[in-house]
Computed example of a mutant assay.
Amino acid sequence: MLHRVFNMKKISVLLLLLACSAFATPWLGATFKRVTHENHLALRIIGVHPESGCFTAGVVADDLVVGIQGKVLTDISQVQEAVSKGKAGQVIKVDVVRGDKKLNLKVKLTDRPDDISNLTGSAIGSKIAKFGENFYQNGNKRQEKPKATLLDFWATWCGPCRKTLPVLASVYNKHAKDGLEIIGISNEDLKTLNAFYGQHASPYPLYRDASQDLWRRYGIRAVPTLMLLDQNGYIKQVWSGAPSEAMVEKLVLEVIQEAR
């Protein structure tokens, strides 16, 4: 049974990022939810990243964004277009209502930091940390530029993990040629992992997170936990529990298609 699924569509706040890719650069660096103000669309600011142009310009929680580039906000695509046509260092004009005041702020686009979990409260949207040299099996199968990457945080003693392994192996065997990479990540001792591999060989790379850096960084508290990354290494979805093969295949193919 699938216990938890988190993705950008299910999170109540959206990132003020670039239009063509939810996790691309540059960005404004705030989260918001859609509301109505004086019969028009407005974006109520939920949070502001401390390394963003919004923070520097003085945007704060509960501000209402009502205009962009001198035009009344009527559709979220106006924000996306303004950002997508810009680059880091460029200034975007943002009209904000704060209480009974209307402010005309100049927000400088910035490069998007890899870790935005302090803004979203989730690993989603952050860029996965680089792997070390601790691939204990199939490290030579790493892809240089995968179109989608699925990370499986698992343990040899975990029943649902064992149920998930053949599902992932099947999806990998079908779609590795299409740009899918799967990496199994465990924090157990090498003797235990190699003994398990001897009885349950995996076709995809396996990584030993001996220091548990990845587990702590992304708050992994249950196994199996799976993370789906886009072609740039940004986390798009996170879920725990043993998924069906049909579900895994559907999700990874969506990401692969986006990369084409």
Rank of each mutant, 00 (worst) to 15 (best):
residue 144 E to A: 15
residue 116 I to Y: 00
residue 245 E to Y: 02
residue 204 Y to V: 03
residue 163 K to F: 11
residue 40 H to R: 14
residue 13 V to W: 10
residue 93 K to H: 09
residue 173 N to Y: 04
residue 166 P to M: 11
residue 211 S to V: 09
residue 10 K to D: 09
residue 56 T to S: 12
residue 202 S to Y: 08
residue 135 F to R: 02
residue 140 N to H: 15
residue 195 A to P: 08
residue 123 A to Q: 05
residue 175 H to E: 02
residue 69 Q to H: 09
residue 18 L to H: 12
residue 130 K to A: 15
residue 220 I to M: 05
residue 93 K to D: 14
residue 181 E to R: 00
residue 147 K to D: 03
residue 2 L to V: 13
residue 185 I to R: 08
residue 80 Q to S: 13
residue 91 V to D: 10
residue 39 N to W: 05
residue 212 Q to R: 15
residue 17 L to F: 03
residue 83 V to Q: 07
residue 206 L to V: 01
residue 259 A to R: 06
residue 111 D to V: 09
residue 146 P to A: 10
residue 196 F to W: 12
residue 79 V to A: 08
residue 179 G to V: 03
residue 102 K to C: 08
residue 162 R to D: 01
residue 71 K to Q: 14
residue 204 Y to N: 01
residue 159 G to T: 12
residue 21 S to C: 11
residue 127 K to G: 03
residue 31 T to G: 01
residue 103 L to D: 04
residue 53 G to R: 08
residue 216 R to E: 14
residue 223 V to E: 06
residue 53 G to P: 06
residue 82 A to G: 04
residue 141 K to M: 10
residue 98 R to H: 07
residue 111 D to A: 12
residue 199 Q to M: 14
residue 105 L to H: 07
residue 184 G to D: 00
residue 119 L to P: 03
residue 115 D to C: 07
residue 188 E to Y: 00
residue 70 G to I: 10
residue 188 E to P: 02
residue 50 P to G: 04
residue 251 L to F: 10
residue 234 Y to R: 13
residue 3 H to L: 15
residue 115 D to G: 10
residue 139 G to Q: 04
residue 1 M to L: 09
residue 46 I to N: 14
residue 232 N to D: 14
residue 98 R to N: 02
residue 49 H to D: 11
residue 58 G to D: 10
residue 90 Q to E: 15
residue 259 A to N: 02
residue 54 C to S: 14
residue 10 K to F: 12
residue 196 F to N: 00
residue 26 P to T: 04
residue 173 N to K: 13
residue 178 D to V: 10
residue 151 L to S: 02
residue 48 V to R: 07
residue 118 N to K: 14
residue 202 S to C: 08
residue 92 I to R: 09
residue 134 N to L: 08
residue 82 A to V: 03
residue 255 V to S: 11
residue 70 G to H: 12
residue 16 L to G: 15
residue 125 G to N: 01
residue 129 A to W: 09
residue 91 V to Y: 06
residue 152 D to P: 02
residue 258 E to N: 15
residue 216 R to M: 13
residue 146 P to T: 01
residue 5 V to W: 12
residue 94 V to Q: 06
residue 9 K to T: 06
residue 227 M to E: 03
residue 164 T to S: 15
residue 81 E to A: 13
residue 255 V to Y: 07
residue 202 S to V: 14
residue 49 H to A: 08
residue 255 V to E: 13
residue 83 V to T: 05
residue 208 R to K: 06
residue 207 Y to D: 09
residue 168 L to E: 07
residue 118 N to D: 13
residue 87 K to W: 13
residue 8 M to Y: 12
residue 221 R to H: 10
residue 143 Q to S: 05
residue 229 L to H: 01
residue 50 P to W: 03
residue 186 S to N: 15
residue 20 C to Y: 15
residue 70 G to T: 09
residue 121 G to T: 05
residue 156 T to V: 08
residue 245 E to H: 04
residue 101 K to N: 02
residue 104 N to K: 13
residue 229 L to D: 04
residue 103 L to I: 01
residue 179 G to A: 07
residue 124 I to T: 07
residue 134 N to P: 00
residue 245 E to C: 01
residue 127 K to W: 05
residue 19 A to E: 11
residue 64 L to M: 06
residue 238 V to K: 09
residue 136 Y to K: 05
residue 144 E to H: 02
residue 8 M to H: 14
residue 2 L to W: 00
residue 196 F to D: 03
